[in-house]
Design a protein around this nucleic acid. Structure first.
Lengths: 215, 215
DNA sequence: TGACAACGTGAGCGATTACTCATATACAAT
DNA sequence: ATTGTATATGAGTAATCGCTCACGTTGTCA
């Protein structure tokens, strides 16, 4: 289940299938436009046109432009939550090796990214100011928190602050370097994937695997 | 000297000191506003007001808003060019250890970043689309190119494509994780600096130091 | 079938945008 | 002092923005 971060304020929750489909179409359109044109430079009228609907319909459900962004981020949060959940669920006893964990976590993430190149670009390039920061930050925090909890089980004697910092480094590194693993045309670049895993594995070896105890 | 990338189109090159000072004031104002409010959300009238000048004066020198962004990036390019230049010049015979090189490259970069927290935030959070991509990409490319040339001297038998990819990974990692080394209040976080260097050092050891020969 | 609610629609509103231009002032030359 | 050029100014313009609202259309009850 999604935690209580980042509530998505809808002006009116749809009570018919039409409404749900319209919302999905609007989000799909906004996803494409935000990724290509950027959040600020994309107009709500553009979104409505791209979604083959009227501007009035858009504002039937979304109170303002930022709500669209927040709803989009919520969708990403759901998908990435599922990815991480599958990884953690597949290793309940903490038996998998770091390489296996990296494969199981990064490969679906990269697939998700490559499916439509511009899909995750939105999240990855969100500005850290204004609407972007308010909408994007909870996503990273949620992942860091859940990943850190699992790492804590593996390395119980580590200093929590330093462990959380290491986890955050990993998450931010993935977030920053994921675009390198895919071409703008949506083709996965295996060398870049290898290199990213190499970097993460190297960092895990020298940092996570040898975290000093508290004190 | 700066290479011929990213030409900055000025409507009129200033021929008096007044003009040069105005341009500097406009760039300083834009730097602050872009970092806090974002590029798109910052209006040219805001920039003029913040620079204590009239909107007309702004357009005396800059043909449009994007030209301001490009001029700003050119300033960053100059400063970061100098940082990298100092590192390379301090090690003409390739004698320094990786740790020394990391210290000499990252410490001034972090200082530059912390001097004003929002200063480099602009560059680091530039969206990869629209005006941002056109303005920001040459900077990364320039650094990758010059760093790769030096690495090529150290590891002459490496496959060029893989070597360049490794260098790009390092540059993008620094670019992405630099914000973690400084608090929003401008205080350097030494633990984060240590962690960033640890990750880069680990990657260098497993990748750059053992690049396979061409084939 | 009638009635009410959910949903669809787009012209248009006030606000804001990037940018212009006619005009005024400061400087550098003779 | 005079002339020419560089710079300063801000009211104004066309365009675009996020968003509203009055009025249709579709769906869901009875």
């Amino acid at each position: 289940m999604i935690s209580d971060v980042s509530p998505v304020p809808l002006r009116r929750r749809p009570r018919q299938v039409r409404g749900q489909q319209r919302i999905a179409a609007i989000l799909d359109a906004a996803e494409r436009l935000f990724a290509v044109t950027g959040y600020e430079a994309t107009s709500t009228n553009q979104i409505a046109t791209e979604a083959h609907t009227a501007i009035g319909s858009l504002y039937q459900f979304f109170p303002n432009k930022e709500a669209i962004l927040r709803a989009l981020v919520a969708r990403y949060q759901q998908r990435m939550h599922d990815v991480l959940e599958n990884v953690l669920a597949a290793d309940p006893q903490d038996e998998l090796s770091p390489d296996e964990l990296l494969d199981r976590a990064l490969d679906p993430l990269i697939t998700l990214y490559a499916r439509g190149y511009h899909t995750l670009t939105l999240f990855l390039t969100l500005p850290r100011t204004g609407d972007g920061a308010r909408a994007g930050q909870p996503l990273v925090e949620d992942i860091v928190r859940r990943l850190d909890a699992r790492v804590a089980r593996r390395v119980p004697n580590a200093d929590p602050a330093r462990r959380e910092l290491a986890v955050r480094m990993i998450v931010e590194t993935v977030r920053a370097l994921l675009p390198l693993t895919t071409t703008p045309e949506g083709q996965v670049r295996p060398e870049a994937v290898t290199e990213l895993k190499r970097m993460l594995r190297a960092y895990i070896d020298v940092s996570l695997a040898s975290l000093p105890p508290t004190g």
